[in-house]
Amino acid sequence: MLYRPLPLDFYQQSTLELSRALLGKLLVKETEEGVASGWIVETEAYIGPDDRAAHSFGNLRTKRTEVMFGPPGYVYTYVMHTHCLVNVVSGKKEHPEAVLIRAVEPYTGIDLMYDRRGKEKKEQELTNGPGKLTKALGITKDDYGLPCFSPPLYIAKGKEIADIETSVRIGIDNSGEARDYPWRFFVKGNRFVSKKR
């Protein structure tokens, strides 16, 4: 283990607080190919069951959302349009909430990221979106349910972020009033923050 994972009690804060607190932390994935990591620079909060944009809206409990009903600090992965996305389960047990990690700034294992994403990519294209960062770091659907506080997929201490911006979330236009909630958080001016379509 290269880095020291954040303790479990780090995840025991509200989902909106956690979404901010995750910025600047180091997302690490250890695989047989090597270790890749990146500083988290963009997150989105999903506060089911009252959030129409959340998979757990209306307390929807399925095989996919089951991990969200458990304690905070665990990995929720799912596939959307062939891309795997990674979330951190948040909120209290039986109240299914999560934080989507939308972008990271590459830190270690950058050659490995190029192998996975393509040698022709510009550096900022490696991880500037939720499906890009999982591919670059080697995060897959098989990481579903793993703890965020021990290898192979974990979040380690990072750097303090002074300038955090907020906006509405991206790509949830069909979610009624929830599309207007200002629950996207990102590091101001960071070039790895995803671009709005």
Score class of each variant (00 low, 15 high):
Ala45Gln: 00
Gln13Phe: 01
Lys196Thr: 14
Leu60Arg: 15
Leu18Glu: 02
Leu146Gly: 04
His81Gly: 08
Arg179Phe: 11
Glu160Arg: 04
Lys122Asp: 15
Gly109Glu: 03
Ala103Leu: 10
Glu125Trp: 13
Lys93Trp: 06
Ile101Phe: 08
Ala54Glu: 01
Val89Phe: 07
Ser19Trp: 02
Ser175Pro: 02
Gly34Ser: 06
Arg102Glu: 06
Val35Arg: 02
Glu125Gly: 07
Asp50Phe: 04
Arg102Asn: 08
Gly109Arg: 05
Ala162Thr: 00
Ala136Met: 06
Gly131Tyr: 08
Val35Met: 10
Gln12Ser: 00
Leu126Ile: 06
Gln13Thr: 09
Arg179Trp: 12
Val28Ala: 01
Leu137Phe: 02
Pro182Lys: 13
Asp142Leu: 15
Gly109Ser: 08
Ala98Tyr: 12
Lys29Ala: 06
Gly145Tyr: 06
Lys196His: 15
Glu120Gly: 03
Leu23Pro: 06
Thr15Gln: 11
Phe192Arg: 09
Asp173Ser: 14
His83Asn: 09
Lys93Arg: 15
Arg52Cys: 05
Thr62Gln: 05
Asn174Gly: 02
Phe192Ala: 10
Val41Trp: 00
Gly58Ile: 12
Ile139Leu: 02
Arg169Gln: 11
Glu66Val: 08
Leu27Lys: 08
Thr43Asp: 01
Glu165Trp: 00
Glu177Cys: 00
Leu23Gly: 06
Arg197Ser: 14
Met113His: 01
Arg102Gly: 10
